[in-house]
Design a protein around this nucleic acid. Sequence first.
DNA 1: GGGCTACTTATACACTTGCACAACAAGGCC
DNA 2: GGCCTTGTTGTGCAAGTGTATAAGTAGCCC
Lengths: 214, 214
Amino acid sequence: MNARRKFRREGEERRRQDLIEATLDSVAEYGLQGATLRTIALRAGVTAGLIRHYFPGKEELLQEAYTALVGRMTEQAKAALAMDGASPRQRLAAFVTANLNAPIVDARVFSLWATFLGRASADPTLARAHREGYLGFRNEVEAVVAEVLAAEQRKPDASQLRHHAIAINAIIDGLWIEGCLAGEMFSPGELAAIGINAVEAELGLAPLDQFQEK
Amino acid sequence: MNARRKFRREGEERRRQDLIEATLDSVAEYGLQGATLRTIALRAGVTAGLIRHYFPGKEELLQEAYTALVGRMTEQAKAALAMDGASPRQRLAAFVTANLNAPIVDARVFSLWATFLGRASADPTLARAHREGYLGFRNEVEAVVAEVLAAEQRKPDASQLRHHAIAINAIIDGLWIEGCLAGEMFSPGELAAIGINAVEAELGLAPLDQFQEK
DNA sequence: GGGCTACTTATACACTTGCACAACAAGGCC
DNA sequence: GGCCTTGTTGTGCAAGTGTATAAGTAGCCC
Protein backbone atom coordinates (compact mmCIF):
# COMPACT_ATOMS: atom_id res chain seq x y z
CA MET A 1 0.00 0.00 0.00
CA ASN A 2 0.87 3.66 0.02
CA ALA A 3 2.48 3.04 -3.33
CA ARG A 4 4.26 5.94 -4.85
CA ARG A 5 2.55 7.35 -7.86
CA LYS A 6 3.77 6.31 -11.28
CA PHE A 7 4.98 9.03 -13.58
CA ARG A 8 6.56 9.65 -16.93
CA ARG A 9 9.34 12.04 -17.73
CA GLU A 10 8.32 14.59 -20.34
CA GLY A 11 10.60 16.82 -22.27
CA GLU A 12 11.27 20.20 -20.74
CA GLU A 13 9.42 22.15 -23.42
CA ARG A 14 6.44 19.87 -23.30
CA ARG A 15 6.10 20.13 -19.54
CA ARG A 16 6.42 23.89 -19.50
CA GLN A 17 3.77 24.13 -22.17
CA ASP A 18 1.44 21.82 -20.28
CA LEU A 19 1.91 23.78 -17.07
CA ILE A 20 1.21 27.07 -18.82
CA GLU A 21 -1.91 25.64 -20.40
CA ALA A 22 -3.07 24.26 -17.06
CA THR A 23 -2.44 27.67 -15.55
CA LEU A 24 -4.57 29.43 -18.15
CA ASP A 25 -7.32 26.88 -17.69
CA SER A 26 -7.26 27.32 -13.93
CA VAL A 27 -7.26 31.10 -14.09
CA ALA A 28 -10.11 31.13 -16.58
CA GLU A 29 -12.18 28.79 -14.47
CA TYR A 30 -11.39 29.84 -10.92
CA GLY A 31 -9.76 33.24 -11.24
CA LEU A 32 -6.40 34.26 -9.90
CA GLN A 33 -7.64 33.35 -6.45
CA GLY A 34 -8.51 29.80 -7.27
CA ALA A 35 -5.53 29.17 -9.50
CA THR A 36 -3.40 27.64 -6.78
CA LEU A 37 -0.31 25.61 -7.41
CA ARG A 38 -2.18 22.48 -6.39
CA THR A 39 -5.09 23.20 -8.73
CA ILE A 40 -2.75 23.89 -11.62
CA ALA A 41 -0.68 20.80 -10.94
CA LEU A 42 -3.77 18.62 -10.71
CA ARG A 43 -4.95 19.88 -14.08
CA ALA A 44 -1.56 19.30 -15.62
CA GLY A 45 -1.48 15.78 -14.20
CA VAL A 46 1.53 16.33 -11.97
CA THR A 47 2.09 17.19 -8.33
CA ALA A 48 2.51 20.72 -7.04
CA GLY A 49 6.17 20.38 -6.19
CA LEU A 50 7.12 19.92 -9.80
CA ILE A 51 6.15 23.44 -10.72
CA ARG A 52 9.07 24.79 -8.76
CA HIS A 53 11.32 22.69 -10.91
CA TYR A 54 10.32 24.67 -14.00
CA PHE A 55 9.43 28.08 -12.63
CA PRO A 56 11.09 30.11 -9.88
CA GLY A 57 7.72 30.79 -8.31
CA LYS A 58 4.05 31.21 -8.93
CA GLU A 59 4.44 34.82 -10.07
CA GLU A 60 6.75 33.90 -12.92
CA LEU A 61 4.42 31.11 -14.02
CA LEU A 62 1.52 33.54 -14.21
CA GLN A 63 3.57 36.06 -16.15
CA GLU A 64 4.70 33.49 -18.67
CA ALA A 65 1.14 32.28 -19.02
CA TYR A 66 -0.09 35.78 -19.75
CA THR A 67 2.67 36.41 -22.25
CA ALA A 68 1.73 33.18 -24.01
CA LEU A 69 -1.92 34.23 -24.07
CA VAL A 70 -1.24 37.66 -25.52
CA GLY A 71 1.07 36.19 -28.11
CA ARG A 72 -1.52 33.67 -29.20
CA MET A 73 -4.26 36.27 -29.45
CA THR A 74 -2.37 38.77 -31.56
CA GLU A 75 -0.94 36.02 -33.69
CA GLN A 76 -4.36 34.68 -34.56
CA ALA A 77 -5.63 38.15 -35.26
CA LYS A 78 -2.79 39.10 -37.53
CA ALA A 79 -2.99 35.81 -39.40
CA ALA A 80 -6.24 37.01 -40.89
CA LEU A 81 -4.37 39.77 -42.68
CA ALA A 82 -2.14 37.36 -44.55
CA MET A 83 -4.42 36.77 -47.51
CA ASP A 84 -2.50 37.93 -50.51
CA GLY A 85 -4.20 38.48 -53.81
CA ALA A 86 -7.07 40.23 -52.09
CA SER A 87 -7.75 43.94 -52.28
CA PRO A 88 -6.84 46.05 -49.25
CA ARG A 89 -10.50 46.61 -48.52
CA GLN A 90 -11.20 42.90 -48.62
CA ARG A 91 -8.28 42.21 -46.33
CA LEU A 92 -9.50 44.80 -43.85
CA ALA A 93 -12.96 43.25 -43.90
CA ALA A 94 -11.48 39.81 -43.39
CA PHE A 95 -9.45 41.14 -40.49
CA VAL A 96 -12.52 42.55 -38.81
CA THR A 97 -14.48 39.38 -39.45
CA ALA A 98 -11.77 37.18 -38.02
CA ASN A 99 -11.59 39.25 -34.86
CA LEU A 100 -15.33 39.15 -34.31
CA ASN A 101 -15.91 35.44 -34.58
CA ALA A 102 -14.74 32.32 -32.81
CA PRO A 103 -12.14 31.46 -31.72
CA ILE A 104 -11.17 35.01 -30.88
CA VAL A 105 -14.61 35.85 -29.59
CA ASP A 106 -14.64 33.44 -26.69
CA ALA A 107 -15.78 33.69 -23.11
CA ARG A 108 -12.75 31.85 -21.78
CA VAL A 109 -10.28 34.10 -23.55
CA PHE A 110 -12.14 37.16 -22.38
CA SER A 111 -12.12 35.95 -18.82
CA LEU A 112 -8.36 35.51 -19.00
CA TRP A 113 -7.84 38.85 -20.69
CA ALA A 114 -9.87 40.70 -18.08
CA THR A 115 -8.41 38.87 -15.12
CA PHE A 116 -4.83 39.57 -16.09
CA LEU A 117 -5.49 43.10 -17.24
CA GLY A 118 -7.08 43.89 -13.91
CA ARG A 119 -3.67 43.34 -12.39
CA ALA A 120 -1.78 45.27 -15.06
CA SER A 121 -2.02 48.60 -13.27
CA ALA A 122 -0.24 47.09 -10.29
CA ASP A 123 2.12 44.75 -12.11
CA PRO A 124 4.53 46.43 -14.56
CA THR A 125 5.42 43.10 -16.14
CA LEU A 126 1.83 42.41 -17.10
CA ALA A 127 1.38 45.99 -18.20
CA ARG A 128 4.33 45.74 -20.54
CA ALA A 129 3.16 42.45 -22.00
CA HIS A 130 -0.18 44.03 -22.76
CA ARG A 131 1.26 47.24 -24.13
CA GLU A 132 3.43 45.41 -26.60
CA GLY A 133 0.59 43.25 -27.82
CA TYR A 134 -1.68 46.24 -28.17
CA LEU A 135 0.77 48.40 -30.08
CA GLY A 136 1.62 45.54 -32.40
CA PHE A 137 -2.05 45.09 -33.11
CA ARG A 138 -2.62 48.78 -33.73
CA ASN A 139 0.33 49.01 -36.07
CA GLU A 140 -1.12 46.21 -38.15
CA VAL A 141 -4.39 48.09 -38.31
CA GLU A 142 -2.65 51.28 -39.30
CA ALA A 143 -0.78 49.53 -42.10
CA VAL A 144 -3.95 48.09 -43.63
CA VAL A 145 -5.75 51.38 -43.29
CA ALA A 146 -2.95 53.08 -45.18
CA GLU A 147 -3.26 50.54 -47.97
CA VAL A 148 -7.02 50.88 -48.13
CA LEU A 149 -6.89 54.66 -48.33
CA ALA A 150 -4.06 54.55 -50.86
CA ALA A 151 -6.20 52.32 -53.06
CA GLU A 152 -8.86 55.02 -52.88
CA GLN A 153 -6.41 57.68 -54.01
CA ARG A 154 -6.50 59.38 -50.65
CA LYS A 155 -3.41 60.65 -48.87
CA PRO A 156 -4.08 61.06 -45.17
CA ASP A 157 -1.31 62.54 -43.06
CA ALA A 158 0.25 60.64 -40.17
CA SER A 159 -2.07 62.13 -37.58
CA GLN A 160 -5.21 61.18 -39.48
CA LEU A 161 -3.85 57.70 -40.04
CA ARG A 162 -3.18 57.31 -36.35
CA HIS A 163 -6.65 58.49 -35.44
CA HIS A 164 -8.23 56.05 -37.86
CA ALA A 165 -6.18 53.21 -36.41
CA ILE A 166 -7.13 54.14 -32.87
CA ALA A 167 -10.80 54.35 -33.74
CA ILE A 168 -10.84 51.08 -35.67
CA ASN A 169 -8.97 49.37 -32.90
CA ALA A 170 -11.59 50.63 -30.48
CA ILE A 171 -14.43 49.40 -32.66
CA ILE A 172 -12.96 45.94 -32.85
CA ASP A 173 -12.15 45.81 -29.15
CA GLY A 174 -15.55 47.08 -28.12
CA LEU A 175 -17.46 44.66 -30.32
CA TRP A 176 -15.17 41.86 -29.24
CA ILE A 177 -16.08 42.48 -25.64
CA GLU A 178 -19.77 42.59 -26.41
CA GLY A 179 -19.49 39.32 -28.27
CA CYS A 180 -17.52 37.61 -25.53
CA LEU A 181 -19.81 38.71 -22.74
CA ALA A 182 -23.13 38.31 -24.49
CA GLY A 183 -22.54 36.20 -27.53
CA GLU A 184 -26.03 34.77 -27.46
CA MET A 185 -27.51 38.22 -27.98
CA PHE A 186 -26.13 38.39 -31.50
CA SER A 187 -26.93 36.26 -34.51
CA PRO A 188 -23.99 34.60 -36.29
CA GLY A 189 -22.06 37.08 -38.36
CA GLU A 190 -24.01 40.01 -36.96
CA LEU A 191 -21.11 41.43 -34.96
CA ALA A 192 -18.79 41.17 -37.95
CA ALA A 193 -21.33 42.94 -40.14
CA ILE A 194 -21.71 45.74 -37.61
CA GLY A 195 -17.95 45.97 -37.34
CA ILE A 196 -17.33 46.17 -41.06
CA ASN A 197 -19.98 48.84 -41.47
CA ALA A 198 -18.57 50.88 -38.61
CA VAL A 199 -14.99 50.58 -39.85
CA GLU A 200 -15.88 51.54 -43.40
CA ALA A 201 -17.92 54.46 -42.15
CA GLU A 202 -14.95 55.59 -40.08
CA LEU A 203 -12.79 55.53 -43.18
CA GLY A 204 -15.43 57.26 -45.27
CA LEU A 205 -15.67 54.41 -47.75
CA ALA A 206 -18.73 54.43 -49.95
CA PRO A 207 -21.03 51.53 -49.13
CA LEU A 208 -20.67 48.79 -51.69
CA ASP A 209 -24.32 48.10 -52.38
CA GLN A 210 -27.01 46.83 -50.03
CA PHE A 211 -27.68 47.58 -46.37
CA GLN A 212 -28.10 51.31 -46.69
CA GLU A 213 -30.67 53.25 -44.77
CA LYS A 214 -33.47 54.89 -46.71
CA MET B 1 -0.64 47.90 28.74
CA ASN B 2 -2.32 45.71 26.20
CA ALA B 3 -4.99 48.38 26.17
CA ARG B 4 -7.98 47.71 24.11
CA ARG B 5 -8.23 49.85 21.04
CA LYS B 6 -10.43 52.94 21.18
CA PHE B 7 -13.27 53.10 18.68
CA ARG B 8 -16.26 55.15 17.66
CA ARG B 9 -19.67 53.88 16.73
CA GLU B 10 -20.72 54.94 13.26
CA GLY B 11 -24.17 54.71 11.80
CA GLU B 12 -25.01 51.55 9.95
CA GLU B 13 -25.22 53.16 6.53
CA ARG B 14 -21.98 55.02 7.00
CA ARG B 15 -20.07 51.90 8.03
CA ARG B 16 -21.40 49.83 5.17
CA GLN B 17 -20.44 52.58 2.76
CA ASP B 18 -16.95 52.85 4.24
CA LEU B 19 -16.45 49.11 4.06
CA ILE B 20 -17.57 48.99 0.43
CA GLU B 21 -15.23 51.83 -0.43
CA ALA B 22 -12.35 50.16 1.36
CA THR B 23 -13.15 46.97 -0.52
CA LEU B 24 -13.01 48.73 -3.89
CA ASP B 25 -9.74 50.40 -2.92
CA SER B 26 -8.24 47.11 -1.86
CA VAL B 27 -9.35 45.26 -4.98
CA ALA B 28 -8.06 48.03 -7.23
CA GLU B 29 -4.70 48.07 -5.51
CA TYR B 30 -4.07 44.43 -4.67
CA GLY B 31 -6.55 42.51 -6.81
CA LEU B 32 -9.06 39.99 -5.61
CA GLN B 33 -6.23 37.98 -4.16
CA GLY B 34 -4.85 40.74 -2.00
CA ALA B 35 -8.21 42.08 -0.95
CA THR B 36 -8.38 40.10 2.27
CA LEU B 37 -10.74 40.87 5.10
CA ARG B 38 -7.82 42.15 7.16
CA THR B 39 -6.60 44.45 4.39
CA ILE B 40 -10.07 45.82 3.83
CA ALA B 41 -10.66 46.33 7.53
CA LEU B 42 -7.35 48.08 7.97
CA ARG B 43 -8.20 50.48 5.17
CA ALA B 44 -11.61 51.16 6.63
CA GLY B 45 -10.06 51.80 10.03
CA VAL B 46 -11.75 48.91 11.78
CA THR B 47 -10.86 45.35 12.69
CA ALA B 48 -11.63 42.38 10.50
CA GLY B 49 -14.25 40.90 12.75
CA LEU B 50 -16.54 43.86 12.25
CA ILE B 51 -17.09 43.02 8.62
CA ARG B 52 -19.07 39.99 9.60
CA HIS B 53 -21.36 42.25 11.55
CA TYR B 54 -22.44 44.01 8.38
CA PHE B 55 -22.04 41.34 5.71
CA PRO B 56 -22.81 37.62 5.85
CA GLY B 57 -19.44 36.82 4.33
CA LYS B 58 -16.71 38.04 2.05
CA GLU B 59 -18.56 37.00 -1.09
CA GLU B 60 -21.53 39.22 -0.33
CA LEU B 61 -19.26 42.15 0.43
CA LEU B 62 -17.57 41.79 -2.94
CA GLN B 63 -20.87 41.52 -4.76
CA GLU B 64 -22.24 44.62 -3.09
CA ALA B 65 -19.05 46.46 -3.89
CA TYR B 66 -19.28 45.54 -7.56
CA THR B 67 -22.93 46.53 -7.72
CA ALA B 68 -22.03 49.89 -6.22
CA LEU B 69 -19.25 50.35 -8.75
CA VAL B 70 -21.42 49.55 -11.75
CA GLY B 71 -24.15 51.81 -10.45
CA ARG B 72 -21.75 54.70 -10.03
CA MET B 73 -20.25 54.24 -13.48
CA THR B 74 -23.50 54.14 -15.41
CA GLU B 75 -24.92 56.95 -13.32
CA GLN B 76 -22.03 59.26 -14.14
CA ALA B 77 -22.24 58.32 -17.79
CA LYS B 78 -25.94 58.93 -18.10
CA ALA B 79 -25.71 62.21 -16.24
CA ALA B 80 -23.93 63.66 -19.25
CA LEU B 81 -27.08 63.18 -21.29
CA ALA B 82 -29.18 65.34 -19.03
CA MET B 83 -28.44 68.67 -20.68
CA ASP B 84 -31.75 69.98 -21.86
CA GLY B 85 -31.96 72.80 -24.30
CA ALA B 86 -29.18 71.28 -26.39
CA SER B 87 -29.68 69.68 -29.77
CA PRO B 88 -29.64 65.88 -29.93
CA ARG B 89 -26.36 65.99 -31.79
CA GLN B 90 -24.81 68.19 -29.12
CA ARG B 91 -26.06 65.89 -26.39
CA LEU B 92 -24.61 62.88 -28.16
CA ALA B 93 -21.27 64.65 -28.48
CA ALA B 94 -21.38 65.63 -24.81
CA PHE B 95 -22.14 62.04 -23.90
CA VAL B 96 -19.15 60.77 -25.84
CA THR B 97 -16.92 63.46 -24.39
CA ALA B 98 -17.98 62.72 -20.83
CA ASN B 99 -17.27 59.04 -21.26
CA LEU B 100 -13.82 59.66 -22.68
CA ASN B 101 -12.42 61.95 -20.03
CA ALA B 102 -11.80 61.82 -16.32
CA PRO B 103 -13.28 60.72 -14.03
CA ILE B 104 -14.69 57.91 -16.15
CA VAL B 105 -11.40 57.36 -17.92
CA ASP B 106 -9.42 56.27 -14.91
CA ALA B 107 -6.91 53.52 -14.30
CA ARG B 108 -8.38 52.58 -10.93
CA VAL B 109 -11.89 52.21 -12.28
CA PHE B 110 -10.62 50.17 -15.18
CA SER B 111 -8.69 47.90 -12.88
CA LEU B 112 -11.85 47.27 -10.87
CA TRP B 113 -13.96 46.78 -13.97
CA ALA B 114 -11.55 44.24 -15.42
CA THR B 115 -10.96 42.41 -12.17
CA PHE B 116 -14.62 41.86 -11.46
CA LEU B 117 -15.52 41.12 -15.06
CA GLY B 118 -12.89 38.44 -15.17
CA ARG B 119 -14.96 36.58 -12.63
CA ALA B 120 -18.28 37.22 -14.33
CA SER B 121 -18.13 34.10 -16.47
CA ALA B 122 -17.91 32.00 -13.31
CA ASP B 123 -20.11 34.06 -11.02
CA PRO B 124 -23.72 34.52 -12.19
CA THR B 125 -24.31 37.29 -9.69
CA LEU B 126 -21.51 39.40 -11.10
CA ALA B 127 -22.59 38.54 -14.62
CA ARG B 128 -26.08 39.79 -13.95
CA ALA B 129 -24.87 43.02 -12.38
CA HIS B 130 -22.79 43.69 -15.44
CA ARG B 131 -25.48 42.73 -17.92
CA GLU B 132 -27.96 45.11 -16.36
CA GLY B 133 -25.54 47.99 -16.35
CA TYR B 134 -24.55 47.31 -19.94
CA LEU B 135 -28.08 47.09 -21.29
CA GLY B 136 -29.07 50.23 -19.45
CA PHE B 137 -26.15 52.03 -21.02
CA ARG B 138 -26.93 50.75 -24.50
CA ASN B 139 -30.57 51.73 -24.22
CA GLU B 140 -29.51 55.26 -23.37
CA VAL B 141 -27.31 55.29 -26.44
CA GLU B 142 -30.10 53.96 -28.60
CA ALA B 143 -32.48 56.64 -27.37
CA VAL B 144 -30.11 59.48 -28.21
CA VAL B 145 -29.31 57.98 -31.58
CA ALA B 146 -33.01 57.87 -32.37
CA GLU B 147 -33.31 61.54 -31.49
CA VAL B 148 -30.30 62.50 -33.54
CA LEU B 149 -31.52 60.68 -36.61
CA ALA B 150 -35.04 62.02 -36.18
CA ALA B 151 -33.63 65.54 -36.15
CA GLU B 152 -32.00 64.69 -39.47
CA GLN B 153 -35.32 63.57 -40.92
CA ARG B 154 -34.16 59.97 -41.11
CA LYS B 155 -36.32 57.05 -40.12
CA PRO B 156 -34.17 54.01 -39.39
CA ASP B 157 -35.97 50.80 -38.53
CA ALA B 158 -35.48 49.02 -35.22
CA SER B 159 -32.73 46.78 -36.53
CA GLN B 160 -30.67 49.66 -37.88
CA LEU B 161 -31.14 51.56 -34.64
CA ARG B 162 -29.94 48.58 -32.66
CA HIS B 163 -26.90 48.16 -34.85
CA HIS B 164 -25.98 51.82 -34.47
CA ALA B 165 -26.31 51.58 -30.71
CA ILE B 166 -24.16 48.46 -30.58
CA ALA B 167 -21.49 50.05 -32.74
CA ILE B 168 -21.45 53.33 -30.82
CA ASN B 169 -21.33 51.49 -27.55
CA ALA B 170 -18.34 49.56 -28.86
CA ILE B 171 -16.59 52.74 -29.99
CA ILE B 172 -16.99 54.31 -26.56
CA ASP B 173 -15.98 51.16 -24.72
CA GLY B 174 -12.95 50.56 -26.91
CA LEU B 175 -11.68 54.12 -26.64
CA TRP B 176 -12.39 54.10 -22.91
CA ILE B 177 -10.17 51.09 -22.50
CA GLU B 178 -7.39 52.65 -24.55
CA GLY B 179 -7.59 55.78 -22.46
CA CYS B 180 -7.57 53.93 -19.16
CA LEU B 181 -4.66 51.70 -20.07
CA ALA B 182 -2.52 54.21 -21.91
CA GLY B 183 -3.83 57.62 -21.06
CA GLU B 184 -0.45 59.25 -21.45
CA MET B 185 -0.35 58.27 -25.12
CA PHE B 186 -3.16 60.67 -25.92
CA SER B 187 -3.27 64.42 -25.67
CA PRO B 188 -6.11 65.94 -23.66
CA GLY B 189 -9.35 65.81 -25.55
CA GLU B 190 -7.88 63.67 -28.29
CA LEU B 191 -9.81 60.54 -27.39
CA ALA B 192 -13.05 62.46 -27.22
CA ALA B 193 -12.37 64.00 -30.63
CA ILE B 194 -11.66 60.60 -32.13
CA GLY B 195 -14.79 59.24 -30.50
CA ILE B 196 -17.05 61.99 -31.78
CA ASN B 197 -15.71 61.65 -35.30
CA ALA B 198 -16.17 57.90 -35.25
CA VAL B 199 -19.68 58.10 -33.84
CA GLU B 200 -20.79 60.72 -36.34
CA ALA B 201 -19.28 58.73 -39.17
CA GLU B 202 -21.17 55.66 -37.98
CA LEU B 203 -24.41 57.62 -38.10
CA GLY B 204 -23.57 59.14 -41.47
CA LEU B 205 -23.73 62.70 -40.18
CA ALA B 206 -22.10 65.28 -42.40
CA PRO B 207 -18.99 66.76 -40.80
CA LEU B 208 -19.71 70.18 -39.36
CA ASP B 209 -16.73 72.06 -40.74
CA GLN B 210 -13.08 71.53 -40.01
CA PHE B 211 -11.03 68.36 -39.59
CA GLN B 212 -11.84 66.79 -42.92
CA GLU B 213 -9.31 64.89 -44.94
CA LYS B 214 -8.35 66.32 -48.29
C1' DG C 1 -25.03 58.68 36.98
C1' DG C 2 -26.46 53.77 36.05
C1' DG C 3 -27.71 50.44 33.04
C1' DC C 4 -28.70 48.33 28.39
C1' DT C 5 -27.91 47.41 23.98
C1' DA C 6 -25.50 46.35 20.11
C1' DC C 7 -21.45 47.95 17.84
C1' DT C 8 -16.67 46.83 17.99
C1' DT C 9 -12.51 44.48 19.42
C1' DA C 10 -9.72 40.58 20.16
C1' DT C 11 -8.67 35.81 20.19
C1' DA C 12 -9.14 31.19 18.54
C1' DC C 13 -9.48 27.70 14.97
C1' DA C 14 -9.58 24.84 11.01
C1' DC C 15 -8.05 25.18 6.63
C1' DT C 16 -5.39 26.61 2.54
C1' DT C 17 -1.51 28.63 0.48
C1' DG C 18 3.33 28.96 -1.58
C1' DC C 19 7.56 27.15 -0.86
C1' DA C 20 11.49 24.00 0.83
C1' DC C 21 13.51 19.62 0.86
C1' DA C 22 14.40 14.79 1.20
C1' DA C 23 13.26 10.49 -0.92
C1' DC C 24 12.55 8.06 -5.03
C1' DA C 25 12.47 6.10 -9.69
C1' DA C 26 12.44 6.69 -15.07
C1' DG C 27 15.13 6.37 -18.69
C1' DG C 28 19.48 7.07 -21.06
C1' DC C 29 24.37 5.58 -21.12
C1' DC C 30 28.07 2.45 -20.70
C1' DG D 1 22.17 -5.33 -16.66
C1' DG D 2 23.77 -1.83 -13.46
C1' DC D 3 24.52 2.90 -12.58
C1' DC D 4 23.67 7.90 -12.54
C1' DT D 5 21.47 11.82 -13.54
C1' DT D 6 17.59 14.53 -12.75
C1' DG D 7 12.73 14.82 -13.40
C1' DT D 8 9.16 13.83 -10.13
C1' DT D 9 6.85 12.71 -5.91
C1' DG D 10 5.46 13.26 -1.13
C1' DT D 11 5.76 15.45 3.27
C1' DG D 12 6.45 19.26 6.19
C1' DC D 13 6.05 24.02 7.59
C1' DA D 14 5.27 28.90 8.58
C1' DA D 15 2.34 32.44 7.07
C1' DG D 16 -2.07 33.88 5.97
C1' DT D 17 -7.09 32.97 5.03
C1' DG D 18 -12.28 33.30 6.25
C1' DT D 19 -15.19 32.40 9.90
C1' DA D 20 -16.84 31.80 14.74
C1' DT D 21 -17.36 33.66 19.17
C1' DA D 22 -16.31 35.59 23.65
C1' DA D 23 -15.19 39.90 25.82
C1' DG D 24 -15.44 44.80 26.21
C1' DT D 25 -17.17 49.45 25.73
C1' DA D 26 -19.42 53.63 23.51
C1' DG D 27 -23.37 56.09 23.50
C1' DC D 28 -28.24 56.57 24.28
C1' DC D 29 -32.33 56.53 27.46
C1' DC D 30 -34.10 57.26 31.88
